[in-house]
């Protein structure tokens, strides 16, 4: 870990400005990912701006009947919130499918969206990695890639976004609210928040330098059966091989977002329109153009089978 300085900002705009004005600065929220990466010197900030005093730790109802989730609300509190459990069950289920109780107590809503990939080559600083060291190459391509991406990847990077919470937020059409260093705010649809890797896999989100997430909003509830199905080798405390967040309506219409396969939660309206034709039709459309490796080619049929499982569960409910 490199030596760093530390401050606690008082307001979101002040925090954003503090990071924008210091090229080595980063925001610190729960620290469950950033501090680990700093110990390994995968992240080497020279300054940390702690956001815990920004009063972003509340969940409020919005005027249209949705919810506004403060950026610093812990994963535990979000998952346990009455309204979330009642109206946005996919989100509660996704959150409790991730990490451990201790980590969820510390991890924040914004931090969860910003967690970095778990590609093992990203984690080994002896190995080339375009995400860790732009231009150095990708050791994962041609290496051990069972856990890695099958779609939306690039010749520069085949990593995945590893989270669960964001997959449910994607299926719920969440919006990310931010404040920029100049005090301006903006609203980024979750669909546009995570970027595909392309030639710049170190640029992972739509956020600008110093731009701070202040909240995530959920639109008014859409009803239906909420499901989060996470497929993994062990029953807990593992990243998804494939996960599916779904909201299935009594008329058979459905929304699906898939995790564990791409740089972002993977969702496609055209694929959802095929729900009446079954899982194969949905998965085939969703994964058109997939480029799996020999290690992770199984994820293609696994997505289809997991969607089938989710549809069966939704039909039963």
């Amino acid at each position: 870990m490199k030596a760093f300085t530390y401050e606690r900002a008082k307001t979101p705009a002040e925090a954003a400005a503090a990071v924008a004005n210091n090229p080595g600065a980063k925001f610190l929220a729960g620290g469950t990912n950033l501090l680990d990466l700093m110990k390994l010197e995968i992240e080497t900030p020279s300054h940390l701006v702690d956001v815990q005093d920004l009063k972003l730790d509340r969940i409020e109802e919005t005027s249209d009947g949705g919810l506004r989730i403060g950026a610093f609300v812990s994963n535990t509190d979000l998952a346990a919130h009455d309204r979330v459990r009642r109206d946005y069950g996919a989100l509660t289920r996704a959150i409790v499918a991730g990490a451990s109780g201790q980590l969820r107590n510390k991890a924040s809503t914004a931090g969860n969206l910003l967690q970095r990939t778990r590609c093992p080559y990203f984690y080994d600083t002896n190995q080339p990695c375009n995400k860790r060291k732009p231009g150095s190459g990708c050791a994962a391509i041609g290496g051990y890639s069972r856990q890695l991406g099958i779609i939306g990847t690039s010749d520069a990077c085949i990593a995945t976004f590893p989270g669960d919470m964001a997959v449910a937020m994607r299926v719920l059409d969440a919006t990310v609210e931010t404040v920029k260093p100049d005090g301006q705010t903006r609203r980024i649809p979750i669909a546009d928040f995570h970027r595909l890797w392309g030639n710049t896999p170190h640029v992972e989100t739509a956020l600008e330098r110093g731009e701070l997430i202040t909240a995530v909003t959920l639109p008014k509830p859409i009803g239906g059966t909420h499901i989060y199905r996470k497929v993994r080798d062990r029953a807990s405390y593992a990243y998804a091989l494939v996960s599916v967040a779904a909201v299935i309506q009594p008329d058979g219409s459905a929304r699906f977002a898939v995790g564990g396969i791409a740089p972002k939660p993977w969702r496609m309206a055209e694929a959802e329109a095929l729900a009446p034709k079954g899982a194969k039709a949905v998965a085939t459309r969703l994964l058109a153009g997939a480029r799996p490796t020999s290690d992770n080619a199984f994820k293609v049929p696994l997505v289809e089978r997991t969607i089938a499982a989710v549809m069966a569960e939704g039909a039963k409910a």
Partner: peptide, 25 residues
């Protein structure tokens, strides 16, 4: 332990990637 046959090392060398059973298993 997954072997990287090009570079000669065990790739999944931490407890996040070398999975052992947890209580739920």
């Amino acid at each position: 332990l997954a072997v990287d046959k090009r570079f000669g090392f065990f790739v999944n060398h931490d407890l996040a990637t070398y999975e052992v059973p947890v209580h739920a298993d």
